[in-house]
Design a protein around this nucleic acid. Structure first.
Lengths: 300, 300
DNA sequence: CATCGCGCTGCATTTTTTGCACCACTCGGA
DNA sequence: TCCGAGTGGTGCAAAAAATGCAGCGCGATG
C-alpha cells in the first residue's frame, strides 16, 4: 500500500536503529528516507527519534507512533486478504510463534491439513519461548501464538487453553515402559535427562522435586527435545515432554512415552492466542479455528 | 495526516455518493479525486465503487475498505491526541451521540465541569435516537454514546448502565405534586402529555398501560421535552421524563417532578458506551471516566 | 430530443520526491 | 592525537507524481 510507505519506513528505521542502514534494506537513499522522517516529524509536531552519533533510537512519541503504525500496517494486510477472500481467492499468510514442543509433530500435521484445503495460504512458523512469543505478537511479527505456560497474558487474547500433563519418554526396553502410567518417584529412581532451565516443563518438574524427598539424578540437560529423545534410545535414561510434542501413535524408533501420574505433577497448559484488540485476517482466523477445534477434541 | 488523504477522500466520496460533489467539499478538482480513486483501486486490485450514471455507490469491497479506513483515520486522530498529551497539552476532542434527555441539564453541567479542568478540549454533542446513536459510533461520527434503552448492543462496548425510573412532571400546583411518589394509576386519572412513539419512555408507559385496566387520557404528543414540560405549567396535565433529564434541584418555573412508584413501571436504563474494539483518545477516555463516575454515584 | 450531471482521459503545469555531493559531528582504534 | 568510518542533515538539480483545464461519452430526466 503506497500511502503507508512512510509508516513502513519509520518501522524499518525503528527496527534497524539507523536511517542509513534502514535505507539500504529499503532500497532507497538515506537522503530520501531522512527527509521523509523529518517531514513527518514536522507534520506531527513531535520528534520520533532521538538522534545519537551511532544512529537513532525511538523517543517516547516514536514508540507510540510505531506501535500504532504496526497496527495500521497489519490492518491493511488483513483488509487485503479479506478483499482477496471476497474475490474467491483463498490466499493469505499465517505467522505463528510457538514453543518448541509444537514443531516436530503438531504444526506439521496441522499446517499440512490446512494447506490441503487452502493451498494458497502460506505459513511462517517461529520457535519462541513464552516471553518472546508474546513480544512477537506485540511487534506484529506473529499473528498467533501457541505456547506452553505463557508468562504474562497482558496484550494476549486467549482463544483456548488446554491441559498438558507431562509424559516421561524412554526406550521401549526401559523397565518403566511396561506400565501404562508412571509415578514421578519411580522416574527419580533412574537417570534423567532434563530440559534446560528456561523451558517450562523443567519448572514443573523442579517444583515437584522440591516437594518430594527423592533426589533427581540429572545426567544431561538440553534445550532440544529431539536430542533428548534420541538419547533415551541408547541409554537407560528418562526424558520428559508434553503431549503436543508427542506423535499421535508411537514412535517407530524404539522410544515410547508414558504419562506421569497427575497426582505427582502440576498440570501445565498450552495457550492459543493472538494480540489483544486485533482483528485477524481470514486465513489466520480460519487456521486458528482449526487449531482450536483439534486441541479441544484431543485434549479436553 | 498527509498520508491518509486518499483514505479520507474515499471516505468523503462514500459519504456524498458522488466524486464531483465530494471534490467540491474537499476543495480539489474532480479530476484529481477521480484519479486517486482509480489508482487506488488498481493498486488494490478491486473496484471500490459501482459507477452509476447518477454517481457512485460503495461496492462490497469498498464497504470493507471504508470501514477499515475510518478506523485508521480515527486511530491516527487518537494517536495525535496521545502525543499532544505527552507534551503536556491537554487538548483533544470529544464527540457524543445521546438521547434528548441528556441535553438540557446533564451534558451542559458535565461538559462545563470537564472543560473547567481541560479548557483545550472541544466537544460535539449530537442528539440521536438509540438506533442512530449506534450508527454514529459505527461510522466514527461519535466517540461516545449515552442513550436510554439502546436497541441492539452489537458493536457497542458498555462502560456503564444505570437505572432510570420514570418521573411524572407537572405544575407545582397539580394535586399529585403534594405526594413524594406517585402511582401510575393516579396519573392516569389526569390528562397526559406523552412522548412521541419513537421515544423509549413512551414504550415503557404504553407497556404498563396495557397491563392496567385504566385508560390513558393522552391529550398531547410531542418529541420535545422542553415543550412538554412548559405545557404542564399552563394546564393541569402530566408529562414524563427520566431523572437524567431533570435538573439537580427543582425547576424555578413552577413545575416539579415526582418519581413513579417502581411497582408500576418497568425501569429503563441508560447506557454509556463506545464502539467495540476501538481505543479511545485520552480526552474521550477522561471524559467518559467522569460521566461514568457521576452517573454511578448519582443513580446507583 | 435537448439538457444536465455524471465519471473519465490527454496534455500542459505545478508540486513533491528523490539522488548526488558535501557538511558537521562522534566514536574507536592505530 | 589524529585519522577513518560511521552517523544525521542540507543545497541544488533532476525525476516523478499529482493537479487542473478542456473536452469526451454516457445515461437519466424533463
Amino acid at each position: 500500500m503506497r500511502f503507508q510507505t512512510t509508516l513502513k519506513y519509520i518501522d524499518a528505521v525503528a527496527r534497524t536503529g539507523s536511517i542509513r542502514r534502514a535505507a539500504d534494506t529499503l532500497s532507497i537513499t538515506s537522503t530520501a528516507l531522512n527527509r521523509r522522517i523529518l517531514a513527518f516529524e514536522k507534520e506531527l509536531g513531535a520528534e520520533l527519534f532521538e538522534r545519537m552519533s551511532t544512529g537513532v533510537r525511538l523517543s517516547a512519541a516514536g514508540e507510540l507512533l510505531v506501535q500504532s503504525a504496526r497496527g495500521q500496517i497489519g490492518e491493511m494486510e488483513r483488509l487485503k486478504t479479506q478483499l482477496a477472500d471476497l474475490k474467491g481467492e483463498r490466499r493469505g499468510h499465517v505467522s505463528i510463534a510457538c514453543s518448541q514442543a509444537m514443531l516436530p509433530y503438531f504444526f506439521p500435521e496441522q499446517i499440512a491439513a490446512y494447506r490441503a484445503q487452502h493451498p494458497l495460504v502460506t505459513f511462517n512458523v517461529m520457535q519462541r519461548d513464552r516471553a518472546a512469543a508474546e513480544e512477537a505478537l506485540v511487534d506484529h511479527s506473529a499473528d498467533l501464538a501457541l505456547v506452553f505456560e505463557p508468562a504474562q497474558l497482558s496484550d494476549f487474547d486467549v482463544l483456548l487453553a488446554v491441559d498438558q500433563p507431562v509424559h516421561a519418554v524412554m526406550a521401549a526396553s526401559h523397565p518403566l515402559a511396561r506400565q501404562e502410567v508412571v509415578r514421578l518417584r519411580e522416574c527419580f529412581g533412574y537417570p534423567l535427562i532434563m530440559p534446560a532451565r528456561n523451558i517450562s516443563v523443567r519448572g514443573l518438574i523442579d517444583a515437584a522435586a522440591r516437594r518430594s524427598s527423592a533426589r533427581m539424578k540429572v545426567m544431561v540437560e538440553s534445550d532440544n527435545f529431539e536430542f533428548m529423545r534420541n538419547l533415551t534410545r541408547s541409554e537407560e535414561i528418562i526424558a520428559f515432554q508434553i503431549p503436543v510434542g508427542l506423535p499421535s501413535g508411537d514412535w517407530e524408533d524404539g522410544t515410547v512415552s508414558r504419562p506421569i501420574d497427575r497426582r505427582d505433577l502440576a498440570v501445565g497448559r498450552i495457550y492459543l492466542g493472538h494480540l489483544k484488540g486485533r482483528v485477524m485476517p481470514v486465513a489466520v482466523a480460519g487456521f486458528a479455528r482449526q487449531i482450536q477445534q483439534v486441541l479441544a477434541e484431543r485434549y479436553e
